[in-house]
C-alpha cells in the first residue's frame, strides 16, 4: 500500500506573526518557515504504519511556491520515500488544493491519505474533508489514534465532547491531530539521503486544475487590543458584576 501525505509550508509556530502596515497580508519576508505542525504528525504516522509493515511507500505532496520543496525535503529526511510538488501560489484555497490532491490520488492510487487537521496559517480546516468528498473515500478527521486492520481501520477522533471512535474502510483519508504521535527528528545522515530522493515537480495547470481563487481578501488587520477594565473592591462586588453586568455566571 502507498500512503500519500500532504504537507504545507507555513510561518513557524514560534514566530510572532505581524500584520503588514498596508493591511495586504502578514509579513513573510525572511521569516522562519516550517512544516505545518499537524502535518509532521501525519508524516510520522505514515512512517510508523510503514515500519509496522502495513505500507510500502510514502509519497509526500506539497502545493505551493518553489520553497515548499524544502518542506518536502524535511518529510523525506524524516523517512518518506519521494515527493511531489505542485507549483501554485502560496495562498491557494483549500478548494483548489483538494482538487489537486484528488488528481494525484487518481495518478498514484494510494491506499491511505494522511493530512494535518488544519494549517496554522489560514486555519481553514477543510482540505481533508473536501478531498474525501471529491474522491468518495471515508474520512476520519481530527485523528488521535489510527489502528490499521485488514481492510479497515479504527480511528479515534478528538471531538469537542471527548473522543469518538469510528471504523472506516480502506482506502480512507485521515486528518491528524497533534496528539496522534510525537514526530521524530530528522537525523543528519537522513537529511543527506533525502537530498537524493526524487521530487516530481508539476504545475496545477499541467494537471488541468483551475486554481482561481473564489475568495477576495479585502484586508488583513490586527485584532483589536483589549482595553483595561475596572478594578473591583472585593469579591462580593466581583460576583455581582459577573452576574448582573457581564451576565456570564
Amino acid at each position: 500500500m502507498k500512503i500519500l501525505v500532504t504537507v504545507k509550508r507555513v510561518i513557524d509556530y514560534n514566530v510572532q506573526v505581524r500584520v503588514k502596515a498596508d493591511n495586504s497580508g502578514v509579513e513573510k519576508e525572511n521569516v522562519k518557515m516550517s512544516m505545518n505542525p499537524p502535518d509532521e504528525n501525519a508524516v510520522e504516522e505514515a512512517l510508523r504504519i510503514k515500519e509496522a509493515g502495513k505500507a510500502d511507500e510514502i509519497i509526500i505532496l506539497s502545493v505551493g511556491e518553489d520553497k515548499c520543496q524544502e518542506t518536502i525535503r524535511t518529510a523525506l529526511a524524516m523517512g518518506a520515500d519521494r515527493g511531489i510538488m505542485i507549483k501554485a501560489n502560496d495562498d491557494i484555497e483549500p478548494l483548489s488544493v483538494s482538487k489537486i490532491v484528488a488528481k494525484i490520488v487518481e495518478i498514484e492510487q494510494p491506499g491511505l491519505i494522511l493530512m494535518g487537521k488544519q494549517a496554522i496559517d489560514d486555519d481553514s480546516n477543510q482540505t481533508a474533508q473536501m478531498t474525501s468528498a471529491l474522491i468518495n473515500w471515508p474520512q476520519a478527521t481530527f485523528a488521535s489514534k489510527i489502528e490499521i486492520e485488514e481492510n479497515a481501520a479504527i480511528v479515534t477522533r478528538e471531538i469537542d465532547e471527548g473522543l469518538e471512535r469510528i471504523k472506516v474502510k480502506i482506502p480512507f483519508i485521515a486528518s491528524c491531530d497533534l496528539r496522534l504521535n510525537e514526530p521524530r527528528y530528522a537525523s543528519l545522515p537522513n537529511i543527506m539521503k533525502a537530498k537524493k530522493k526524487p521530487i516530481d515537480i508539476k504545475s496545477a495547470e499541467e494537471l488541468g486544475i483551475d486554481v482561481k481563487p473564489r475568495l477576495e481578501n479585502i484586508k488583513i488587520s490586527e485584532p483589536p487590543t483589549r482595553q483595561k477594565g475596572v478594578m473591583v473592591a472585593d469579591v462580593a462586588e466581583l460576583v455581582q458584576k459577573l452576574k448582573y453586568e457581564a451576565k456570564v455566571i
Binding site: 510525537e182 514526530p183 521524530r184 527528528y185 537525523s187 543528519l188 545522515p189
Partner: peptide
C-alpha cells in the same frame, strides 16, 4: 530518552 530520541553524531 524519549520516543523521539535521536542520538547526536560525530562529525
Amino acid at each position: 530518552s524519549k520516543d523521539s530520541f535521536e542520538p547526536g553524531l560525530n562529525i
